[in-house]
Design a protein around this nucleic acid. Sequence first.
DNA 1: ATTGCAAGTCTTGCTATACAAGGTTAGGCT
DNA 2: AGCCTAACCTTGTATAGCAAGACTTGCAAT
Lengths: 110, 110
Amino acid sequence: MSEERIATNLRKGVLEYCVLALLSHGEKYGLELAGDLTARELIASEGSLYPLLARMRENGLVEPRWDTSGTGRPRRYYAITQHGSEQLATFTRVWVSLGAQVDALLEGSR
Amino acid sequence: MSEERIATNLRKGVLEYCVLALLSHGEKYGLELAGDLTARELIASEGSLYPLLARMRENGLVEPRWDTSGTGRPRRYYAITQHGSEQLATFTRVWVSLGAQVDALLEGSR
DNA sequence: ATTGCAAGTCTTGCTATACAAGGTTAGGCT
DNA sequence: AGCCTAACCTTGTATAGCAAGACTTGCAAT
């Protein structure tokens, strides 16, 4: 199994909350998010992001807004909702707990 | 999204290497592994484990051995292979790296 | 004007994983 | 013989990330 495939599987279920964490600082538009996530090696392409944003919109985690005022093409800015903030807090708990279990196992295997 | 569904997604791609880490201490049989993983809340049922063990067998990460000597029904013991050890090391690198990125994002969102 | 390019959003088809539920086999105990 | 449990495995489902590319719109150069 290549490093890339390992990373792909690890990203499952994490990406959604990384988006929420990024948005907790203020709204961002699609490609801007993609850039941030790519820099952190949290996505491999935009093909993950846009379907994810659509799901998050449907689930009320983010609220989009078209911005046509600026220069260039219209951008769709996303803001985190109250519900999104709550889910981020829940995720953080689960992440910390599960991460500790995995860390313990990996420690023990060395 | 419930805590359980969050955890389910987080487990994807992690479970395989938790099994390898457990086996790095010595061979174990199926239900024994299931017990260890359940205690750590790393699986929700055996329905994840047996298909995973079959895949790992096919990929040469583990080497099974039937043991009919003891009392009770025959058990299938799994041992980690050389290739499995290498994959575990690779996973550890990816896990640490990706985990640090996620931790940084979650830290920043508080 | 027209052509070309780049930014930006979104879609399609694919693969892989965890899970729930249940089926199967074999030994031990009464 | 009959039941219970340990232990193993199978089937069907839902979902997530990804690669590749389609579509649209503004801008810049020719």
